[in-house]
Design a protein around this nucleic acid. Structure first.
Lengths: 184, 184
DNA sequence: ACCTGAACACCGTTCAAGT
DNA sequence: ACCTGAACACCGTTCAAGT
């Protein structure tokens, strides 16, 4: 991929930047043809660089995942274990809501080792596992759940507001209910 | 609607029965054209009887909603308030999972008074509100939530398994976490 | 190597023409 | 009053033809 031809690299970047805009506007189910058209490339060019929709979303999200993994380390250093985990999960669900459909993509990919999104997810997963383990050892979080449970539940709360914008005002309370359920 | 012509009534029933099968197979996003084709009617006939996808889903679900409202009364009579609410919510999420996409339709319609699904939802809503109020007065459920919160959260747990079948084995545990979060 | 865009098989939705 | 199916404007995806 480092030996990419200059025009190919330019198109790759162009498609990705356009996809970021269009997905922010229309969600993860945005028309791929629309993305290609607005990027000014042929349909086939999009498919050459991103053979599946997940491949495109993956490229779109890798940055966000890396950032979240970094935030986990910061929070772990700054806060007690339970507060660090709760703070991190709260940031995660806020970030996933930036793109409509993202909680779904994230949950779908959580256990799918074949998806390109899964690889990008791993760093974040391990960060989640670390925070969770520490909070469990401190006796602040129930011991019968793992990081997959926590990520699935938190994203499901993000999904609610995206499914029905009128419920967005309830988001904080719903998140609090789930976090209380995770407590020991 | 009682003065429906015989052929219209026959088509209405035929479309609904076919939709039940197809939605069970393919979820709430099933192709409307496919439903019309398998019912043996023209595309326009489906639109005449069900002008929107929601109208079709509503007809499909009214029975289930009525049944759930009835179950609420049974559980309220047979169990202490907290157990009645928890049992009812557990049945609800099990039923909603029968059709892929149903938790989403239900949450979407929860606050939309214009949708035909909303009307069908009202009986169930009131049943939920009654169970919830009793459980809150008994001090078993936290007092800062309403039935909309409870229904949204429970359906979000149903959404998880539908989004990623590999997470289905975690369903009972995830439901337990949310129910614990709802406890006082 | 990479790009383009026509082509194919779908989809939701509408509406003139029939009975 | 109701039904039909062609028609329209989309969509995802592929692939021969170009550079």
């Amino acid at each position: 991929m480092t030996a990419r031809r200059a025009d190919a690299q330019r198109n790759y970047d162009l498609i990705l930047a356009t996809a970021r805009t269009v997905v922010a506007e229309q969600g993860t189910q945005a028309s791929l043809r629309d993305i290609a058209r607005r990027a000014g490339v042929g349909d086939g060019t999009l498919y050459r660089h991103f053979p599946t929709r997940d491949a495109l979303l993956e490229a779109l999200l890798r940055q966000g995942f890396d950032r979240l993994a970094g935030r986990a380390a910061e929070l772990a250093a700054a806060l007690p274990p339970g507060a660090a985990l709760r703070g991190w999960l709260t940031e995660l669900v806020g970030g996933a809501q930036m793109y409509r459909g993202m909680p779904g993509s994230l949950v779908a990919v959580l256990t799918d080792t074949t998806s390109p999104l899964h690889e990008a997810c791993q760093g974040m997963r391990e960060a989640a596992a670390g925070l969770l383990r520490a909070a469990q050892q401190a006796g602040e979080i129930r011991s019968d759940i793992d990081e997959t449970d926590a990520l699935a539940l938190i994203n499901s709360v993000g999904w609610i507001a995206e499914q029905n914008p009128q419920l967005a005002s309830r988001h904080d309370r719903l998140l609090a209910v789930v976090l209380d359920g995770l407590a020991a």
